[in-house]
Design a protein around this nucleic acid. Sequence first.
DNA 1: GTTATCCGGACTACCACAGTCCTGATTGTT
DNA 2: AACAATCAGGACTGTGGTAGTCCGGATAAC
Lengths: 152, 152
Amino acid sequence: MLRLSKLTDYAVVVLVRLAGMEGVQTSPGIAAATGIPEPTVAKVLKTLAAGDLVSSQRGAKGGYRLNRDLAAIPVSDVIAAVDGPIALTACVDGSASECESQGLCPMRGRWDPVNDAIQSALSRITLADMQVALLPAFRTPVAQVPFQSAAE
Amino acid sequence: MLRLSKLTDYAVVVLVRLAGMEGVQTSPGIAAATGIPEPTVAKVLKTLAAGDLVSSQRGAKGGYRLNRDLAAIPVSDVIAAVDGPIALTACVDGSASECESQGLCPMRGRWDPVNDAIQSALSRITLADMQVALLPAFRTPVAQVPFQSAAE
DNA sequence: GTTATCCGGACTACCACAGTCCTGATTGTT
DNA sequence: AACAATCAGGACTGTGGTAGTCCGGATAAC
Ligand code: FES
Ligand code: FES
């Protein structure tokens, strides 16, 4: 189904939310703002921090802060940070010891151009593009700052 | 990891093999030629037949035959036939009832352009492109293999 | 010192995928 | 007519990754 993980979806939500504020933001705060459960938000943030997409400030008054502008974060970076490197098949480049019959398999490295095409397409779309996609024409501030009171 | 299923990989192998012969080919024959286990090959063939990529001839002397030329089969068609429609997230278009909080989620339909970009990139690459990638002039798989771990 | 927050991992439940197999239906061969 | 070969369509199970939660420890402000 060529599906990416929900964590990546959450990551985009969190990053966009993170970009909307100036100072650092805490995990519970983002969780409350986005409606995503707090533990999951914390997990996503930690993953993003490991991927150098966000910076963390420990201790009281701590939180997370966006490292780069949304326009400088392609979707491929988020996917790579959360889901790992983009590898359509087991035999693209990194993991070459997956196929049982490598010597006779006619697919050796065949998917590389396909994989690269996807990577290229994903690199061209930044989070800023996804952000503006949700603002139709009128500025509906409610749309970008939703509250999750109905979430149950 | 944005990985597609191994069945899709097998499907490409099978389709390329199917294009190399003139008449119909049986499941065991393709299995023997490709090294893929027979039951798996049969499953892939049945899936491809359901997707109208191959035609089947039942009974003795039966087998499978390619419907369209390799150049007319984009990779996206194979993926769609085997793995189902390309849907990066649960909320692209077809399945709109996946998100628990659709009304407040700021990602509603956000992935659509990303999904479309991938679909477009995949539509531009045909099986013929992947085929020529592996046949330089002769079948010398060792030439383009940097290092073979020879795990098997 | 206390409190709030992040860090790093372990842990479990679940679901899609991978692979196999079985019972019919169809068709050519003997 | 009987037989053999092949596809059709499903059911079935094991495995692996994902989703989500949780805990003890480190860090820094108050
Ligand atoms: S599928 Fe990767 S080498 Fe065969
Ligand atoms: S993630 Fe799909 S609508 Fe929220």
